[in-house]
Simulated scan of single mutants.
Amino acid sequence: MTRTTPPRPLDVASAFPELAGMVRTATRLHPRPGSPTVRESSVGGPLLWPAGEAWPSCSAEHDAPFPLNTPEEVRTLRRIRAREEWTDEDHAEVSRIHAGHDPSLLPEGPHPLIPVAQLYARDVPDLPFPEGTDLLQVLWCPFIDIEDQPGTDAVQLRWRRAGEVAEVLAAAPEPAYVGTYELVPVPCVLHPERVREYPAAHDLSPEQAGRVPRGEGEGAAGYRGALSVAPGWKAGGWAAPFTFRDSGGPEELRCGECAAVGEPLLTLDHSEWDAETVSWRPVEEAADASSTPTEVTVGGGYTLQFYACPADPRHPPVTVMQ
């Protein structure tokens, strides 16, 4: 099933001509739980990974303040939660999983990374694919401090040419434990859709920001919620709004390799829509549809944005929690 974003409640370019030249195209990924294959774009799905290429790992020391779970326990917990009725055994298993394992059991690194997203150029043309590549793979180490690990290998990108992968890795390595199941994406198929975006308020001049509407409440035509940046998981476009803090400006987006200011690459949002952004809910979705299909939560439900180096997208991304 395709996913279609409703028209915006206001034509931004007509209402605010000074913003007309600031429009960008983004690709809303519209992830929904499913069974993607290595030949498909996905969130949390299997990767088209060469059998002879080493699987990436993270050597950083991670904070583990909560009881740990194995990846298989995360999958088991989700299977049980999806059932309409639970048996006594189900309740006992959920209690056991919630109790978790002592963080002291966490082995010293390196820890194998887990797949976050796989994006083929045919589905997401709004990404800066380096010449000769048509596939982007994103992996991370599922611990709560990933957004505070600049310059480490906790988040890694792989740009490759899909046609050059002859033999595919049969089974990817997994970390012994994950820091939180909220950083393990539910395997999702994608329903890509290109949309037009305008910059969030922090990317506007003070004069521009003062002119845009600030509607409040569910369905309101406020600039932040309805007229500027699409919510949910997306590729390209503009940076997500800052919520719990102010933007650090260009300085916090500088590439660690060459100091170029990064551009939005991938946005990982807790929800596909909420009360403020409900006007972005696809027309095909029922009012009671789940707005959290990936079950990924960063921080307290914030947005994690990956910024790519415009000089060379192969440089390590900058990650910012917004």
Rank of each mutant, 00 (worst) to 15 (best):
P175Y: 01
I114A: 10
P33D: 00
H62D: 08
Q156R: 08
W140Q: 01
S104D: 07
R194Y: 08
L113H: 02
T292N: 15
G237F: 10
I144W: 06
A82N: 02
V296G: 07
L47D: 11
A171G: 02
C255S: 03
A51S: 10
W273K: 12
I144E: 12
R78Y: 04
T292R: 15
T70Y: 12
G21D: 14
T294N: 12
L183E: 05
T4L: 12
D88H: 04
L68H: 11
P192R: 09
D134V: 14
S271M: 09
G151I: 13
A121I: 13
D90V: 03
A121S: 14
A308V: 03
C141M: 03
G217K: 06
L265D: 02
G249W: 03
L169V: 07
P199K: 12
R96C: 05
S290I: 11
M321Q: 13
A220E: 06
F129T: 14
P187Y: 06
P17N: 14
A209R: 15
L183Q: 01
R28W: 05
E93F: 05
A201I: 13
G236S: 00
G163A: 15
E251Y: 05
D274T: 14
S59Q: 10
T27S: 01
A275K: 02
E131F: 09
D312H: 11
L135I: 15
V184S: 10
V124T: 14
E207D: 13
W280L: 01
D153F: 00
A176W: 06
A311C: 11
P293A: 06
V195T: 08
G44Y: 00
G248E: 04
D312L: 08
K234P: 04
T319L: 04
A289F: 08
A220V: 01
P71W: 05
E131S: 15
S41Q: 07
R122C: 04
D63A: 06
V116R: 06
T277R: 09
D88M: 00
